[in-house]
């Protein structure tokens, strides 16, 4: 009985994995290539056009983890971090309107065959965040992460997400050709999507940096196009560790891989934040667990990202020290 169930689960999983790439491939075949043409024509027309208002100092795009349902429906715990960055950087543009797990920025609840299912799951997640069903969202988006990382599918997938990131930048007043820096913050799977899109964003001459928060990333060719990848990780983060193991191009002996190349050139900085987990509890967005210096894990993550953005060193924590009194609620 258990064996039969296991076989059924494995078969279903294989079939889901098998059909995972078809969305982005079908998009490319039916309209993606034409859309890419149009986007390029639009961008060429706008290139060098001065912005009407004073543009933001820098541009930041936050790409959510695999729990996202669309650009606006991210797991609730992620919201305070983005809000806090906006509060601390009032002259910057901080956007989170790109859904990283769709080539056309089409959220799961948009016009899709399974939109009804995803809407129900979204409702359920709001009512009961610990329920099992929302993990279907994670599973679906995790497959897209691997589509992005796959050398065969990545190029078309990444054209789609790069387009959406470019559109978002333009919506928020980015002036092509201005040389204003752009930073992509990728949480978990969002880090892989950020790297994938970077290949094409780099071709468009954007000065680009990527910040990974617990990112599960491959040795994507996008690494060749970015100035710096800052990888913030928790020492108890199993998914971040899994990324290091399953993507062979990140292994120490992977000579010549984009990851090894970027490391050798000093374009990858890895910073341990402390014994932070990926999710469930004591995770990067946890406002209720505190480091010995009194900051919540959410504050630790927020401060680290903020420091990297403004070019300051990330504050080190003496994890062997006695915990201080709780510092109060997390920034929000």
């Amino acid at each position: 009985m258990i064996l039969n169930l296991l076989v059924i689960v494995i078969v279903v999983l294989f079939l889901l994995l098998t059909f995972g790439p078809l969305e982005s491939l079908g998009w490319w075949r039916d309209k993606g290539a034409d859309e890419a043409h149009e986007t390029l024509a639009d961008m060429a027309a706008e290139y060098g056009t001065p912005a009407a208002d004073p543009p933001p100092e820098q541009f930041v795009i936050y790409l959510s983890g695999i729990g996202a349902i669309d650009g606006s429906s991210v797991p609730p715990e992620e919201v305070p971090l983005v809000d806090e960055l906006r509060r601390r950087l009032p002259t910057w543009s901080v956007a989170n309107d790109v859904f990283p797990y769709s080539v056309s920025n089409r959220g799961l609840t948009a016009q899709r065959p399974l939109a009804g299912l995803w809407k129900r799951i979204e409702t359920l997640r709001i009512a009961n965040p610990t329920s099992f069903l929302p993990f279907l969202v994670n599973a679906r988006n995790a497959i897209q992460l691997f589509v992005c990382a796959d050398r065969r599918y990545g190029p078309t997938y990444n054209i789609g997400t790069a387009q959406e990131i470019l559109k978002s930048l333009l919506r928020h007043g980015y002036q092509l050709g201005s040389g204003v820096p752009v930073t992509l913050i990728g949480w978990s799977g969002g880090a892989q999507i950020a790297l994938g899109a970077s290949w094409y964003l780099g071709l468009a001459d954007l000065p680009l940096k990527v910040i990974s928060l617990g990112g599960m990333m491959s040795d994507d060719y996008g690494l060749d196009k970015i100035q710096l990848l800052t990888h913030l990780r928790g020492t108890e983060d199993v998914f971040e560790k899994m990324g290091r193991r399953i993507f062979a191009g990140r292994w120490p002996g992977a000579i010549g891989s984009p990851w090894s190349r970027a490391r050798a050139e000093g374009r990858i900085v890895e910073i341990d934040l402390g014994p932070i987990h990926h999710n469930d509890k004591e995770h990067y967005y946890d406002p209720d667990t505190f480091a010995p210096d009194g900051r919540s894990y959410l504050q630790v993550s927020t401060d680290a990202i903020h420091s990297v953005l403004i070019g300051q060193p990330v504050k080190e924590i003496d994890w062997s020290a006695e915990p201080k009194e709780e510092a109060g609620p997390a920034p929000a």
Binding site: H37, Y47, R152, P155, W199, L203, D205, Y221
Partner: peptide
């Protein structure tokens, strides 16, 4: 081309934009 594992651009056109 795909199984070679190298980066390829599956478009017939140049993605690059002109410099200022």
């Amino acid at each position: 081309d795909l199984l070679a594992g190298h980066q390829f651009t599956p478009v017939e056109f140049d993605f690059e934009l002109p410099r200022a």
